[in-house]
Design a protein around this nucleic acid. Structure first.
Length: 881
RNA sequence: GGGCGGUUAGUUCAGCUGGUAGAACGCUACGUUGACAUCGUAGAGGUCGUUGGUUCGAGUCCAAUAUCGCCCACCA
């Protein structure tokens, strides 16, 4: 059954195969088991027609690590995947597609367009899911959801109706952000403000029946056409006498009042502000306060309408230019200044947003925001890293009503019906055919659809079957952690929280793990327009999924942006290769008949106890790291353990036993090698699932699948303090000897005799016990002990250690000047150390105030280093003679 | 105008509740020892942006400041 591992690490050979193996065996699908604790993560649904980018790769890797870890810890772990219909984004793609075929939305009509959209979805909907599989995501595909699924659409309707009935959804004429290109309203969150260089036009408005003029300042002269007042600050003495008077609107001739309002900043511009209630959110407010009414001059396409007189039909920016010119001609343009300000752009298409008055549907936010803030203040929401809590609070404290209606077709149509006879508005879960008030059948459904985030806000529970009281919902809700990018806190995280508090009465998750952005190697945001995006699939193809995953989660911290450096992927691929080859080594040295590796009845040697101690130490440390979401640190610890402790030291130390005559000792080593390797594979599995599973299945005594093995627990019976210290000493000695030999340019093939001169007997058994290790790892040919170093000649290299000196007689090879130089270096190192320790210990404050333990350690160091220095000095003296 | 983050070895980044600065890559020298050259051994490289403060002791806490970047924001 056990076959050999192929000679080369080739992730392509097994990654897809293992994904299929896991998925086909149902390992991703958790059982609803009351004896187990649930652990739930909802995958942030990518756009249904999107494709995988590094951001997805990062946060899905994190989720996969968490879910695999918890699954191994024995939880019933559900990771629910799905996709988002992404209304505006998908609709734009479909519009573009039909446009390229010479057709338009209007031609197709609603039904026809939706048919196209579904075809598009069917065509591209599977793409990102298949790409995610390449990454190794162990999510439950049997519970795959789509925001337009019937089940989720029911949830959307239910929430809409409930909120409406509670008065939390209302319809109204408000000033909203209009995208003239996407031809829909969008919410505040969907507007990107970009600083742009513009101008500040100072325009004279003549005061009626007077020679006076009042000069206003505006960045948007085209909106003059819609002005309904000029406002000044109530306390602005320059204008007090004009308040209440009337001015004549240039170009238009309309007579409008001068009003006083606190909103006006006296210092800005001229201190006089034109008021255009229909095309500026602030002016809208001012206008409402003063009962100015409305005057719409820009239409939904961004063109001046019939209210614009001679400018009718001009595009808004052309109108700006034309109007500025006309004002200039008429001598009303006092001056034009350069002026930078933030201009709102459509997040999706980058078109400049036009604030317009429009009848739209809104969610009243204040009552929903309040509980969300309270939950946070009570400490019930844990942001990782914590600082994002402030972002959350700031947004909620300044929240405005949420415009949820979109003039789009791809999405959830509002469950709203209008009676054309009596004007009744009916909001209903079921289709409405007749008016509940006048019984008329002259009924039509609202044509608008909902903001795509309205449905994703319900994701944590709509995916589990809510509003039905399903078994899934009862068992898996609330979820445990949300993993997503900090850029969608406003769009999504907050909305899920208030939606869940409102509908479910509890938080949708306890922890919010926020990832940073993956940038290119120069720190730029990856973007299509720059063409600097790195395709995760290409990386996987070249280096393997495990290498990519490991790269994404190490060497960075949550919430901080990271640069994608290809060299790091290569390094991690090399790490996988290292593990692969270490396994091959273990396998080729196993007895054919080994069935189940065990520590039972084994006569553990000192290095066996050392590696077990190291293993069980990191098991504990990794648990701590994982509990704190320090997954990068956890990964780093396993990496170091495998490469340094296991490969560089343990395997090397154990080789002589494997090849030696002592069969029992060899057998013990074999068992420890496999036992430790298998525990290590478990620890590494969440991070590098493919290679670990592949190796696992090749090892003796393995269960059928590592993915469902249980997570290692730290075992104090396998922590051996004495043996650990002994091996640490041996390592230091070997390193010291190697160092000395390298500095003296002694080639490794030239073996040397090691003469140990001990300060006392305590080290003797330890050294004797490790004779073989010195032979192998320090190129020794013989080990002897000498009591009196005066018996040794000068033709030695001397390595000074804590508690002993090691002499290497290599008379013919020794360049004494070099040896003196080397010892001088040792000397100054030790002197520096002693100086540091002494100054610390002579500091009255340190000795009296620092913890006794720290002081004691420093004292011990002083003695140790002094002794070592003495030995070095002695040695130097004898060489100089 | 507010808020936040970065500033640590040539490069990319770690560094938890303060106690002699770490990794990877790169670089230098050596190495065909029976897993691995996608490797091994050894080495060089840092006044932890600057200035103050708290402390016996600060990369680590506090305050200023410089610089880069991000987010929010109704001075038109």
């Amino acid at each position: 059954m056990r076959e050999n591992l192929p000679k080369n690490y080739d992730p392509k050979e097994f990654e897809d195969r293992l994904y299929g193996f896991w998925n086909d065996n149902g390992y991703f699908t958790p059982e609803i088991d009351e004896n187990k604790k649930p652990y739930t993560i909802m995958m942030p649904p990518p756009n249904v027609t999107g494709s995988l980018h590094m951001g997805h790769a990062l946060n899905n890797t994190i989720q996969d690590i968490l879910i695999r870890w918890k699954r191994m810890e024995g939880y019933s772990a559900l990771w629910l995947p799905g996709t988002d219909h992404a209304s505006i984004s998908t609709e734009a793609k479909v519009v573009e597609k039909i446009k390229s075929e010479g057709r338009s939305k209007d031609e197709l009509g609603r039904e026809g367009f939706l048919k196209e959209a579904w075809e598009w979805t069917d065509l591209y909907g599977g793409t990102i899911k298949n790409q995610l599989k390449k990454l190794g995501v162990s999510c439950d595909w049997t519970r795959d959801r789509f925001t337009l699924d019937e089940m989720l659409s029911n949830a959307v309707e239910e929430v809409f109706v409930r909120l409406y009935d509670k008065g939390l959804i209302y319809r109204g004429d408000r000033i909203i952000n209009w995208c003239p290109s996407c031809h829909t309203a969008i919410s505040d969150a969907e507007v990107d403000h970009e600083d742009s260089h513009g101008h500040l036009w100072h325009v004279n408005y003549p005061v009626k029946d007077s020679d006076e003029t009042i000069t206003i300042a505006t960045t948007r002269p085209e909106t003059i056409l819609g002005d309904l007042a000029v406002a000044v600050h109530p306390e602005d003495e320059r204008y007090t006498h004009l308040v209440g008077k009337t001015v004549v609107l240039p170009l238009v001739g309309r007579e409008i009042p001068v009003i006083a309002d606190n909103y006006v900043e006296m210092e800005f511009g001229t201190g006089a502000l034109k008021i255009t209630p229909s095309h500026d959110p602030n002016d809208f407010e001012v206008g409402a306060r003063h009962g100015l009414g409305q005057c719409v001059v820009i239409d939904e396409d961004g063109y001046i309408n019939e209210n614009g007189g001679e400018f009718k039909g001009l595009e808004r920016f052309a109108a700006r230019k034309a109007i500025a010119e006309k004002l200039n001609e008429e001598g009303l343009l006092k001056e034009v200044k350069d002026h930078d300000n933030a201009v709102g752009h459509c997040e999706r298409c980058k078109t400049v947003i036009e604030p317009i008055i429009s009848k739209q549907w809104f969610v009243k936010m204040e009552p929903l925001a309040k509980p969300s803030l309270e939950a946070y203040y009570k400490g019930e929401i844990n942001f990782v890293p914590e600082r994002f809590g402030k972002v959350y609070v700031h947004w909620l404290e300044n929240i405005k009503d949420w415009c949820i209606s979109r003039q789009l077709w791809w999405g959830h149509r509002l469950p709203v019906y209008y009676c054309d006879d009596c004007g009744e508005i009916i909001v209903s879960r079921e289709d409405v055919n007749s008016c509940s008030k006048c019984k008329s059948t002259n009924i039509r459904q609202e044509t608008d659809t909902l903001d795509t985030w309205f449905s994703s806000a319900l994701w944590p529970f709509s995916t589990l079957g809510w509003p039905e009281d399903t078994e899934d919902l009862k068992y898996f809700f609330p979820t445990d952690v949300l993993v997503t990018g900090y850029d969608i806190i406003f769009f999504w995280v907050i909305r899920m929280i208030f939606s869940s508090l409102e509908q479910m009465g509890e938080l949708p998750f306890k922890d919010v793990f926020l990832t940073g952005l993956v940038r290119d190697s120069e720190g730029r945001k990856m973007s299509k327009s720059l063409g600097n995006g790195i395709d995760p699939l290409e990386i996987i193809d070249e280096y393997g999924s495990d290498a990519l995953r490991f790269t994404l989660i190490t060497g960075n911290t949550p919430g901080n942006d990271m640069r994608f450096i290809i060299d790091r992927v290569e390094a991690n691929r090399n790490f996988a290769n290292k593990l692969w080859n270490a396994t091959r080594f273990v396998l080729m040295n196993l007895e054919e008949n080994m069935e189940k590796p065990t520590l039972e009845g084994m006569d553990l040697q000192v290095e066996d106890k050392w590696i077990l101690t190291r293993l069980h130490t990191i098991i504990g440390e990794i648990k701590d790291n994982m509990d704190k979401y320090e997954i990068g640190l956890a990964g780093q610890r396993i990496y170091d353990f495998i490469w340094e402790d296991y490969c560089d030291w343990y395997i090397e130390m154990v080789k002589s036993r494997l090849y030696g005559d002592d069969k029992e000792s060899a057998k013990t080593a074999q068992n420890v090698l496999v036992v430790v390797l298998k525990e290590t594979l478990k620890l590494l599995h969440p991070f590098m699932p493919f290679i670990t599973e592949e190796i696992w299945q090749h090892l003796p005594g393995s269960s059928e699948a590592l993915i469902v093995e249980s997570w290692p627990a730290a075992d104090t019976d396998l922590v051996f303090q004495k043996e650990k210290e002994d091996i640490e000493f041996i390592k230091t000695a070997i390193k010291g000897i190697r160092n000395a030999r390298a500095e003296m340019n002694i080639i490794p093939s030239r073996k040397s005799k090691l003469i140990f001169v001990l300060e006392n007997d305590s080290l003797k058994p330890i050294i004797e016990d490790s004779k073989v290790k010195f032979m192998a790892l320090a190129s020794a040919e013989e080990i002897v002990f000498e009591v009196d170093k005066r018996n040794l000649g000068d033709d030695n290299i001397s390595v000074v250690l804590d508690g002993c000196e090691v002499y290497l007689p290599l008379s013919d090879l020794i360049d004494f000047d070099k040896e003196i130089e080397r010892l001088q270096k040792e000397k100054s190192k030790l002197e520096d150390e002693i100086k540091r320790v002494k100054s610390k210990l002579s500091n009255e404050g340190f000795v009296s105030k620092a913890p006794a333990k720290i002081v004691e350690e420093e004292k011990e160091k002083q003695i140790k280093y002094s002794q070592m220095l003495e030995n070095v000095l002695e040695r130097l003296e004898s060489l100089k003679r």
